[in-house]
């Protein structure tokens, strides 16, 4: 933060680099289409830098906006962020209330005119077991979904409150209610009833803070063969567009090699 303000034109140069890079990624046509994030480490970042937890969350939000901008510019059609797990309700009631208030502010901030959502034509999609939310928060979420529903360019899924197992069970229920003949049930049908239906399949998952667990996030989608998973040691607010760029390059490379390999395999068969 401090460095940025000291160098004149820093943000301008950053913006310029970002544009060039994202266009380059688009030209390659091999970039990811759906990226998932587990944004770990806001609180640890606050403790480490001796700032308030609230400010840590703020830094995390800033970092998220920057990353999302880069991704949407690079042709990503769908991003999913893990904001709140159903298990998080187990935290102290004070903290839960704080997080709910925070979420209300954030969702307003994202969907407000001229901010992230309208700037990039993003449809905000709050997914999870919404029945668990307090009424005022739910109202705010529904409002955000309503005003962004006509945006078509990209989707931002906010998992709030969400667990991957709940998502699978939810899908199973939908399938059972809507299918008369049990013979018609298959993998695709279950997949098409997940919260992330109608979107490109997840192809990249990023988790920060050096934790190597999925913590019940998009378990169905991530287990697919070929989904790339990136585990990073840095805390989420420290994760910037530069690291993201490196990951994108890596992704493009793996993907173009993968296509090559698959062709070789076909030839060998």
């Amino acid at each position: 933060m401090e460095v940025e303000s000291r160098i004149p034109g820093y943000s301008f140069i950053q913006e310029w680099l970002k544009n060039i890079f994202s266009r380059t990624i688009r030209v390659s046509d091999c970039g990811p289409k759906h990226v998932g994030f587990i944004m770990d480490g806001n609180r640890r970042f606050a403790r480490k830098n001796d700032i308030e937890i609230k400010e840590g969350h703020e830094a995390g939000f800033q970092s998220m906006s920057k990353i999302l901008e880069l991704l949407y510019e690079s042709g990503v059609q769908s991003a999913t962020v893990y904001a709140f797990s159903i298990e998080n309700f187990k935290r102290s009631s004070k903290e839960v209330t704080n997080l709910m208030e925070l979420a209300k502010d954030r969702i307003k901030q994202i969907s407000k005119n001229g901010e992230l959502a309208s700037k990039y034509g993003i449809k905000v999609n709050v997914i999870g077991d919404l029945s668990l939310l307090p009424e005022d928060v739910l109202k705010e979420m529904e409002h955000a979904m309503e005003i962004t529903k006509n945006n078509k360019r990209a989707v931002l899924n906010i998992c709030f409150p969400y667990t991957g197992r709940e998502e699978i069970v939810h899908s199973i229920r939908e399938v059972i209610i809507n299918t008369k003949d049990s013979k018609e049930i298959n993998e695709t049908l279950i997949e098409n009833n997940l919260y992330t239906k109608d979107q490109p399949p997840l192809d990249l998952l990023i988790r920060t803070s050096g934790v190597s667990r999925l913590s019940d996030f998009m378990i169905w989608q991530t287990s697919h063969k070929g989904v790339k998973i990136e585990l990073l040691d840095c805390l989420w607010p420290e994760f910037g567009p530069f690291r993201m760029s490196w990951i994108l390059l890596k992704f493009i490379f793996k993907k173009s090699f993968q296509i090559h390999d698959e062709e070789e395999d076909k030839k060998n068969v």
Binding site: G164, R165, I168, S212, R213, L214, S215, D216, I219, W220, T222, S223, H224, K225, G226, V227, K228, I229, L231, K254
Partner: peptide, 17 residues
């Protein structure tokens, strides 16, 4: 590289990998 290769998704919930 890290790839779950269709490992049972239900069983990946809190698994450390």
């Amino acid at each position: 590289s890290l790839d779950f290769q269709d490992f049972p998704p239900w069983h990946l919930r809190l698994t450390e990998f």
